[in-house]
Design a protein around this nucleic acid. Structure first.
Lengths: 243, 243
DNA sequence: CATATAACCAACTGGTTAGTTAATTAGGAC
DNA sequence: GTCCTAATTAACTAACCAGTTGGTTATATG
């Protein structure tokens, strides 16, 4: 079925026609295009031009513009999970482990601006395309397990507060590492400072780690006693109102 | 210059022709269209149809599709600042004041889904349109002032940690209140639970308030001593690396 | 070298879309 | 009621754009 292009001349200078290389060039160009312009703003003609191939070659290898978009999306989500490296963090001491998990998440978002933009774009489309993916979802099961394990071990040894919901907690870590990047353009303008300068990023990284660890290590009940009715406890959920 | 349509018949049944009402209908339809489809996905024909007016009427009152988008954007940003109600929070006791500020921000995001989507959309466009606005930016000066005041008073009375950057802090509050909504579609799918059910929202509201207050009330240095080199201090910025 | 297969391309198509043209008509002023 | 201005419209246009048609040519295989 599949023929082997390196069957005769081995690793000589590659031939003029090379389907693998062409597909790679298309995918790379498509990624840049979708990331910069979004799904609706992306132009197939521009992808062809950037990839240096004829437009029809795109349709030769991919079903449609949307199919191409889905491929890019799946790839970048898989990459993210690889970089969270939660498995190697699972057996560290709880505080150290959490610190590393937050740091890895933060650093990966910083290092992969395309990820942030595609996540935002996909949510503008109500996750319509990600939902078609068959691989991404399962990648997240071990992550939640790691968080549960670290939280439990931290509570046992008395360094973490109790009653932390792992999904809320993961969402908060992501939020703190994501929002300052996803919304950097409006924020930078409003506050008159570039939020993605190396200095600001280093400062924010420290702040985010501090916030997560500070929260975990402040044992809700025992220190909130500072003022009146605002005392919180693990049962505080019932008190909440959404106006 | 401007004529008054209620000059003769006062508040009788409004005439068939009514420029104010038409503009309002256009703006409302445009808002829904931009929020659902984004700027590039929005269709002027659909806006006209939804507003129940001829398409050219849109061009009669607004310069272009992009001009219309900017109007919507400015309106929704101004609304946000009104709902943060930071001025009435400024003189509360620090803990109570912070709690209220976080709560107001959270509740307004929940109550105004259009805001979240337009902020995301605008950042996909690199804040290109918001930057043309002449009003939005100045709205944020009092907000930062409120945060500075509350932080300082909380530190004085010993209930808050020191060395909290007000911009980082505001970004974190927004992040925690925003991300779970902006990315609810991908998150809900990945974690198999609707993040915007009333129950989940109430839980998250409590979690976010807890996280912000827990962070503020955990006095960095004195409790982080739990482990090795990871101790943080106000000078920790120098230590940070971004791999 | 003959031939089959797949890589690759120029030119086209049909539907869509932001914006325009050239008018018609309602209502207020005098 | 006449006349002016602004509200409102139908029909049009030129550019755009995802996807197709109908090929040509490189290359691996026997």
């Amino acid at each position: 079925m599949e023929h082997n292009p390196r069957a005769h001349g081995s690793l000589r200078h590659k031939p003029v026609r090379n389907s693998e290389a062409s597909q790679a060039k298309i995918l790379e160009a498509a990624r840049a295009e979708f990331v910069t312009h979004g799904l609706t703003g992306a132009r197939v003609d521009r992808i062809a031009e950037q990839a240096g191939v004829n437009k029809n070659l795109i349709y030769h290898y991919f079903k449609s513009k949307e199919d191409l978009y889905l491929r890019i999306l799946e790839g970048i989500y898989s990459d993210m999970r690889e970089h969270q490296r939660d498995l190697e963090v699972r057996d560290l001491p709880p505080i150290e482990g959490m610190r590393a998990l937050v740091a890895h998440t933060f650093d990966h978002f910083v290092a992969t601006p395309d990820l942030i933009r595609l996540m935002s774009i996909e949510n503008i489309h109500y996750a319509h395309y990600l939902k078609q993916s068959k691989v991404v979802k399962s990648l997240y099961i071990p992550l939640l397990q790691t968080i549960k394990t670290l939280l439990a071990r931290g509570q046992e040894e008395g360094s973490f507060r109790a009653n932390v919901d792992p999904v809320d907690f993961y969402v908060s870590i992501s939020a703190l590492a994501y929002f300052h990047l996803s919304n950097r353009y409006t924020l930078s303008w409003i506050f008159n400072q570039k939020l993605d300068s190396p200095k600001r990023l280093a400062q924010r990284r420290a702040h985010v780690v501090e916030m997560v660890l500070g929260y975990l290590q402040s044992h809700g009940d025992d220190l909130a006693g500072a003022t009146q009715t605002t005392r919180k406890s693990s049962r505080s959920k019932n008190r909440s109102r959404l106006e």
